[in-house]
Amino acid sequence: MLKKFMPIFAAAWLLAACTFSDGLPRPHLPQTAVSADGRWFQMTESDKAGKVVQTSLLAVAQETEGLRFVQTDALGVPKSRQILTRKGWKNDGFVMPNAASRQVFAAMLPYLVSADTLALYPDAKQMPSENGALFRYKNRDLWRVSKQGDGLKVVLPDGRSWLVIPADEEK
């Protein structure tokens, strides 16, 4: 009987082990990163050719344990729910893990908290490039970031890009 459930237990253990090891540098999270009301953003994902793939909304809220990121599609269906704690990133709820969204959230963190990127990510390297700043961690590219008006453009190593624009009422 126990042998029958052993693969299920092994899979659950592996998933639990992967919760905090996602290949992203662990940020030095400030005590309070966003206001009590939170922040809203419009996110537009484009493929490598520049064609818009999807537009979504992102809500970022300050929690006692860290920051909660909830990305939804146009109908309000969650695409990604992540919590950033002092231990790193973890999924929030039963939404499938979304590594690309997690990378974009990590890339926009310095922009979100108005902090020096190297202070937030002391283990990452920032290199200037012609299209913004390239961030590397453990000898691999993480993302490229550049300012776009009031927003931020994040380009992932696979060529997908995200334009993140504040949707807050205040400006």
Rank of each mutant, 00 (worst) to 15 (best):
E65R: 11
G66C: 03
L67Q: 02
L67K: 00
L67V: 02
R68Q: 12
R68E: 06
R68H: 13
F69Y: 12
F69N: 02
F69R: 05
F69D: 03
F69L: 03
V70M: 13
V70Q: 14
Q71R: 11
Q71I: 08
T72D: 06
D73C: 00
A74Q: 15
A74C: 09
A74S: 14
A74R: 15
A74V: 13
A74N: 13
L75T: 14
G76C: 01
G76D: 10
G76V: 01
V77M: 15
V77L: 14
V77R: 15
P78W: 04
P78S: 10
P78A: 09
K79Y: 08
S80E: 13
S80I: 03
S80M: 11
R81Q: 12
R81P: 00
R81C: 03
R81D: 07
Q82N: 09
Q82F: 03
Q82A: 07
Q82H: 10
I83E: 15
L84Q: 06
L84C: 03
T85P: 02
T85W: 04
T85D: 10
T85V: 00
K87A: 10
K87G: 01
G88T: 05
G88V: 01
G88I: 01
W89V: 02
W89R: 03
W89Y: 11
N91T: 13
N91H: 09
D92L: 08
G93P: 02
G93N: 08
G93S: 04
G93E: 09
G93A: 07
F94W: 15
F94P: 00
F94M: 14
V95P: 00
V95W: 08
M96G: 05
M96Q: 13
P97D: 08
N98E: 08
N98P: 08
A99K: 15
A99E: 10
A100T: 06
S101M: 13
S101P: 05
S101W: 13
R102P: 02
R102S: 01
Q103P: 01
Q103C: 12
F105Q: 12
F105T: 03
F105K: 08
A106Y: 02
A106Q: 11
A106S: 14
A106P: 00
A107N: 03
A107H: 01
M108I: 04
M108A: 02
M108T: 02
M108V: 01
M108L: 08
P110Y: 04
P110I: 05
P110L: 06
P110A: 02
Y111M: 11
Y111L: 10
Y111A: 11
Y111C: 04
L112G: 00
L112S: 05
L112A: 06
V113L: 07
S114T: 09
S114E: 15
S114Q: 15
A115W: 06
A115L: 07
D116R: 11
D116L: 07
D116S: 11
D116Q: 13
T117S: 14
T117C: 11
T117I: 13
T117D: 12
L118Y: 06
L118S: 11
A119H: 12
A119E: 15
L120S: 07
L120F: 07
L120N: 07
L120K: 09
Y121M: 04
Y121N: 06
